[in-house]
């Protein structure tokens, strides 16, 4: 089931267009990494999704509700942490969460208990009586997420949630996001830190120059497309490079001493067959492992593809 559908979305700031015919769908329960260079239009796209800005044209449906037709109903479904989120600095953490519970019309009898539960969920329960203005960056971020989650939204959208956080806070954030995913929330996380997104993201939406450059479904990607293999060969991999390259679906990308880093196209069964074939050839394989698939690889592959596509397009145009 699709939780978010975007069709031909265009958005203009006065005098310039920043989103061009953006279309994609996001499945319920998925965790999507929204990545792209600065100024690509990620934040604008998120603000259109959460009905904070009105697009020039196009359709956005969130949970079956048309965002442009009924933005207020969409607000109830979404918890949004903006990249430049603000806090009520002169209120205590407890007051901030209480105010937001009232504003979000949370239907619980005991708001105070609800506030303490949320504070515990985002690991800020030890700071309840501190003023928000004196909190460290990490705690402010947690409070921001707590405010976004106070009404238990089905969709959680986090824009640069880890920026400025120390390593410990990032680990805790990662744990919190995994926990949200486990609770069935649909997540969209915009970030430049791809390594962290790897922990919990199932999809990756790459935005470049206001367009969707690629929407990668990572699970499918792993199952049926390209994977990288690290093959260690006793006595040096260079001697066996030709034999490796002769295998179906395998191409050697680099060799470093005993280790050959290879690109392999095929699924798990094909990978098993390859191992059997290498052993059958009597190659001195002492280590055979899949190199960790990373968002970074996928992102780089997309960005590397673009100049080629561009030059191809230019040639076509010239012709």
């Amino acid at each position: 089931m699709n939780m978010i559908e975007v069709k031909n979305l265009n958005f203009d700031y006065p005098g310039k267009r920043v989103l061009h015919n953006v279309s994609f769908t996001i499945k319920a329960g998925s965790a999507t990494a929204l990545v792209g260079p600065n100024g690509a239009g990620k934040t604008t796209l998120l603000r259109c999704l959460v009905a904070l800005d009105r697009p020039h044209s196009g359709d956005i449906t969130v949970g079956g509700i048309d965002v442009t037709e009924n933005p207020r109903a969409v607000h109830r479904q979404i918890g949004y942490l903006s990249d430049f989120f603000g806090l009520f600095n002169d209120l205590t953490v407890r007051q901030c969460l209480t105010y937001m519970s009232w504003s979000q019309q949370v239907s619980v009898k005991n708001v105070a208990a609800h506030v303490e539960k949320i504070a515990k969920d985002v690991m800020i329960d030890n700071m309840l009586d501190r003023k928000a203005g004196v909190l460290s960056r990490g705690y402010r971020q947690r409070l921001g997420i707590g405010l976004a989650l106070v009404h238990d939204p089905a969709i959680v959208i986090l824009d640069e949630p880890a920026s400025g956080m120390d390593p410990e806070a990032r680990i805790q954030l990662s744990r919190l996001v995994r926990d949200l995913r486990a609770r069935g929330k649909t997540l969209i996380v915009s970030s430049h830190i791809l390594n962290e997104l790897e922990d919990y993201c199932t999809d990756m939406l790459i935005i470049r120059a206001g367009r969707v450059a690629e929407h990668v479904l990572l699970s499918d990607h792993e199952a049926r497309t390209v994977r990288h293999l690290r093959i260690s060969l006793q006595g040096g991999a260079a001697a066996h490079a030709d034999a490796l390259a002769a295998q179906t679906g395998l191409s050697v990308e680099s060799i470093d001493g005993d280790v050959a880093l290879c690109r392999f196209e095929g699924d798990d069964a094909a990978q098993r067959a390859l191992l059997a074939a290498l052993a059958g050839l009597g190659m001195p394989v002492y280590n055979f492992s899949a190199a960790a698939h990373s968002l970074q690889d996928a992102y780089m592959r997309v960005t590397e593809k673009e100049p080629a596509a561009k030059s191809a397009g230019k040639e076509g145009g010239d012709a």
């Binding site: 920043v18 061009h20 260079p37 100024g39 690509a40 367009r211 673009e306 561009k310 145009g317």
Partner: peptide
């Protein structure tokens, strides 16, 4: 990427001075 084929169709409102090398159209 993708900007070439849609350039005319995407011009919706008013012409603006363009700056070389900008990502936005």
């Amino acid at each position: 990427p993708f900007s070439g084929k849609n350039t005319k169709a995407e011009r919706v409102l008013f012409t603006e001075k363009s700056t070389k090398g900008e990502d936005v159209t």
